[in-house]
């Protein structure tokens, strides 16, 4: 190597020399052909299964602020809904439990006791009035319970549905009724129903308001031995029934039954003058 020339060579000069390494012009023809084939293959190529999963993440990475705001809004809405709903649902569950008690107190005796009373009435007309008192007592509990629900506005037409969603709908509807009764009643066309609900003399069965002459007679007979039983007449209002409930103890009721001495197919009654 020429030492004089060598002094002029630098690393930058060598790199410029390296830049002169270039492919022949025909190389680009084959390059273009191969690239075209690859490009077509890429267009036709079936996309991998995970590409659909990747695209949302790509969008998320591209719009972090928008997604963050949307996520925050969603979380706040859900949490608000959850807190609000859980409060109502807690109340709604208690209401549902109370309603279940009321239904048990009203409906179960209605089926079993009413049948029993009818059976006794056929065999022993006097004793059946005692059974009627027992039945009415349980029914009165249900009615009182019902009225309490009506006053708080939690008695709805969904109360006989046991599913949690139905209970929650009922609770929400009741809450809405409590806050805006006019609008809800107008929207749902339940105005007449609400009027009947707010009526103080509420009874579930209209026929039960009508007392038969036999019941009046039995009530008169019982009045001497069981004074409070005379107040248990079906014609009396709820206040009378409530008084009966408060004054009628179980011991006294059993004593009254013993006085009639019901047994087998006969009945004996002790009468004092």
């Amino acid at each position: 190597m020429n030492q004089d020339h060598k002094k002029k060579v630098t690393i930058e000069g060598l790199m410029r020399f390296k830049r002169m390494e270039q492919p022949a012009p025909e190389f680009w023809r084959s390059f273009d052909k191969e690239l075209r084939a690859k490009q077509l293959a890429a267009i036709v190529e079936k996309r991998p299964w995970w590409s659909s999963l990747v695209s949302p993440f790509t969008y998320m990475r591209r719009h972090p602020a928008t997604l963050g705001a949307a996520a925050a809004l969603t979380i706040s809405l859900v949490s608000y809904k959850y807190i609000h709903f859980s409060g109502i649902q807690g109340h709604g569950l208690n209401t549902a439990q109370s309603e279940a008690v009321a239904e048990l107190a009203a409906d179960t005796p209605k089926t079993s006791h009413q049948e029993n009373v009818q059976a006794i009435e056929i065999a022993h007309p006097q004793a059946s009035s005692i059974a009627q008192v027992g039945y009415k007592t349980s029914k009165t509990v249900a009615e009182v319970q019902d009225k309490r629900f009506q006053s708080t506005g939690f008695r709805t037409e969904f109360s006989d549905i046991d599913s949690p969603s139905a209970r929650s709908i009922a609770a929400n509807l009741a809450a809405a009724r409590a806050s805006q009764p006019e609008m809800i009643s107008h929207l749902l066309g339940l105005e007449s129903h609400l009027v009947s609900v707010t009526n103080a003399d509420y009874t579930s069965e209209p026929l039960e308001r009508v007392a038969s002459p036999s019941e009046e007679r039995r009530a008169r007979l019982l009045a001497t031995s069981l004074p409070s039983a005379s107040h248990a007449d079906a014609r009396l209002g709820s206040s009378g029934i409530e008084r009966t409930l408060s004054s009628l103890s179980e011991d006294r009721l059993y004593q009254s039954i013993r006085r009639y001495d019901v047994g087998g197919e006969k009945i004996s009654m002790k009468v004092k003058f």
Partner: peptide, 21 residues
């Protein structure tokens, strides 16, 4: 697997002449 150096370019000629006779 190297491409051919275009030794006809002025840059190449200058460097080559600086390195060798």
């Amino acid at each position: 697997s190297l491409d051919t150096v275009n030794s006809e370019e002025p840059v190449s000629q200058e460097l080559i002449s600086a390195l060798t006779d």
